[in-house]
Simulated scan of single mutants.
Amino acid sequence: MTSATQVIPSPRKAVLRAEALARRDALDLDNRLEWDAEIAARALALPAWKDGPGPVSAYWPMRSEADPRPILEGLHERGLPLCLPAIVERRMIFRHWAPYEPIVPGGFGTLVPAPDQPEVRPAILLVPLAAFDRRGYRIGYGKGYYDRALSELGPTVSIGIGYAAQEIDAVPHEPHDRRLDWIVTERETLRCG
């Protein structure tokens, strides 16, 4: 990593990202909706929730990403506090959020909690994936926000959420890349970290 806010993109990762995103984009919408429900059932069965930790952060889905909102609704029903990430001054922060509370455009095509919501420190992060491997390494969108956030947060449970079609044999990883603890797809739950 060159600085606290810049990651030099890996040409190999860029190719793998483009291929994985094309596979994800080609998935049938009806299948994705069914798979999102299967992912939610698997994610809600994880032992990570056993002791009722919180807050839990997720992402607001964009494009063809696996949708974590059913997971968030299930966790909200269990009484766990929730938050969503926002990029502020080139850094990922987390703000309180609950289902049906307002969200606003946050850049990069995302939706985020309103700026007046309090900043919180999540104990668990649901992380989007462009591509992943079975060791728990992921390819995101190339800006390094999640890797930096996981480094800054310290001990945090990280759970990648995606479709099986996004799996690749091996993600090239660098020292700044953070391995996920779990990956949940519509087909299986992988314990990685």
Rank of each mutant, 00 (worst) to 15 (best):
A37F: 09
G106A: 09
V88C: 08
V15K: 12
P155C: 00
G140H: 04
A48H: 12
S10K: 01
S64Q: 14
G136F: 04
E65N: 06
A20I: 07
R63I: 12
Y145T: 01
L44D: 09
V184P: 09
D30L: 14
H173S: 01
W49H: 06
F108Y: 15
I159T: 05
L80V: 00
R78T: 07
A14C: 11
Y137T: 03
G52Y: 05
L46R: 11
P55T: 06
R24T: 13
H76F: 15
E38P: 01
I159F: 05
T156F: 11
R135M: 11
A14K: 09
D133V: 00
A149H: 05
E152T: 12
T185E: 03
A22C: 05
V171H: 02
L80R: 02
P175H: 01
L153N: 01
I39M: 11
P47L: 13
E77S: 14
Y141W: 14
E152N: 14
P85C: 03
D169K: 03
G79T: 09
A170Q: 15
T189R: 11
W97Q: 00
I124P: 05
R134A: 15
L16E: 00
A149D: 06
L27E: 07
P81I: 12
R178C: 03
L21P: 08
I93K: 08
A131T: 00
A4W: 14
A4P: 13
D147N: 06
G109I: 14
E19S: 13
K143T: 11
L125M: 11
P105Y: 12
G136M: 07
D177C: 03
F108G: 10
A165V: 15
S10V: 08
R24W: 14
E77M: 13
T185M: 02
V7H: 00
V171S: 04
D169T: 04
S158N: 03
Y141A: 04
T5M: 08
Y100I: 06
